[in-house]
């Protein structure tokens, strides 16, 4: 990051501080869980180049999660490090969107999910670059560069699978159909978002959901796929009400750390 003097971090009242911690956990948990799912492909991808590409994206996401968790812990001020937050919170305390905790499925499911999430993340991060919190603005700028690349990579694959063979088309359409009911949650807002937007800490771009839909629709169309109809959107992740998948994911992720509480690694 640059050495020029950053604006001083704004003083936070308790309510704003609490909202900020929540918000940072949402951002962080999205990335940690999604990065974890992607890492499951390492050694099992369809081709060597993709083992490397997916690992790259996973590393970017887990790296972003680490920075965000660290900032969340510092903001909270109770001495919880990024590892404490990652490895010693139960699923009820996790704040990721439901979409990212679903099992990785086949390659089409992974790629379509990456694309849908990536476009949303891109627009959100673009706005967050203007955050009045210098640390968050900085993380957003770095993450934006990485996310641009993730969207490019996943987008190309959506085209290839949608407009490849009958089988790849069928799998891509099925992935889209299964994931669609989880996309609404990416744009749901509550008091946390309102508080932070008002304080200039988490600026929101104009019509993020609309721009997401437009970009997704464009790629889906070019991929000869059909945009699913909107139905009831699954939700609850931001409040800690998850699917059954997160518990199993965390059991695996946390087992070694939890088996040796207090140990250094």
């Amino acid at each position: 990051m640059s050495e020029t003097a950053l604006p001083a971090a704004p003083a936070l009242d308790d309510a704003t501080r609490a909202a900020l911690v929540e918000y940072l956990l949402r951002l962080a948990d999205d990335r940690l869980v999604l990065g974890h799912r992607l890492s499951e492909w390492c050694g099992h991808a369809p081709i060597l180049e993709e083992d490397i590409a997916l690992a790259n994206i996973a590393l970017d996401l887990i790296g972003q999660a680490t920075l965000l968790l660290r900032l969340a812990g510092e903001t909270e001020g109770k001495g919880r490090s990024e590892d404490a937050l990652a490895y010693f919170r139960d699923s009820a305390a996790y704040r990721n969107a439901l979409m990212v905790e679903l099992p990785r499925g086949d390659f089409a499911f992974t790629i379509v999910r990456q694309f849908l999430f990536g476009v949303a993340a891109f627009h959100q991060l673009e706005a967050l670059q203007q955050s009045a919190l210098p640390d968050l603005a900085g993380i957003a700028a770095k993450a934006l560069k990485e996310t641009r690349y993730h969207v490019r990579h996943a987008g190309e694959w959506v085209l290839k699978l949608g407009d490849g063979t009958e089988e790849s088309h069928r799998r891509a359409q099925q992935a889209l159909d299964e994931l669609w009911r989880y996309t609404g949650e990416l744009f749901m807002t509550d008091d946390v978002d309102a508080t932070l937007a008002a304080a200039g800490l988490a600026p929101v771009g104009r019509d993020a959901a609309g721009r997401w839909r437009s970009q997704v629709s464009d790629v889906v169309g070019r991929a000869t796929l059909a945009l699913p109809a909107d139905g009831y959107m699954q939700r609850g992740g931001r409040q800690g009400r998850h699917t059954e998948h997160l518990g199993r994911l965390l059991a695996e992720m946390q087992i070694v750390a939890r088996s040796h509480p207090g140990a250094q690694w």
Partner: peptide, 16 residues
Amino acid sequence: RAPSLRRKMSLLAKVQ
């Protein structure tokens, strides 16, 4: 199952 975020990233980078 890597027990810290740093180890998780390091191992992923190594396997990559």
